[in-house]
């Protein structure tokens, strides 16, 4: 497995600019607010244990990490770490195929 990426990643503000070009009748600040609202609502959903399902894009859910005994790397002392949830993304069919199309 290797990282392939020499291109600069797209940032949130760049995405907002691009959407703004497509939605010319909306003010830039409204598009910005819309993107923030979408991401906020997605975070809220996951924070309350709700799944997100976006057809053709993918789904987000929570995975549980069991409690475990860890170590403080400095002192070597053992520490009990409680179980926790972590966000997980599973790409949808359309995204999987499009991302992979030049590789087949």
């Amino acid at each position: 497995m290797t990282d392939n990426n020499d291109k600069q990643p797209m940032t949130k503000s760049e995405l907002i600019d691009a959407l703004s070009m497509e939605q010319r009748h909306l003010a830039h600040k409204d598009v910005e607010l819309a993107v923030k609202t979408i991401l906020e609502q997605m975070s809220d959903a996951l924070a309350t244990g709700e799944r997100i399902e976006i057809r053709g894009f993918g789904s987000f859910s929570l995975h549980f990490r069991a409690p475990r005994t860890g170590r403080n790397p400095k002192s070597g002392d053992t520490v009990e770490l409680s179980g926790k949830h972590v966000p997980h993304f599973k790409p949808g069919k359309d995204l999987r195929e499009r991302v992979n199309k030049d590789f087949e």
Partner: peptide, 16 residues
Amino acid sequence: GRDVKLSGFGNFTLRQ
């Protein structure tokens, strides 16, 4: 072929 970084939410990264 570009990664996407949405600060506060997370990053979508391509792997080969």
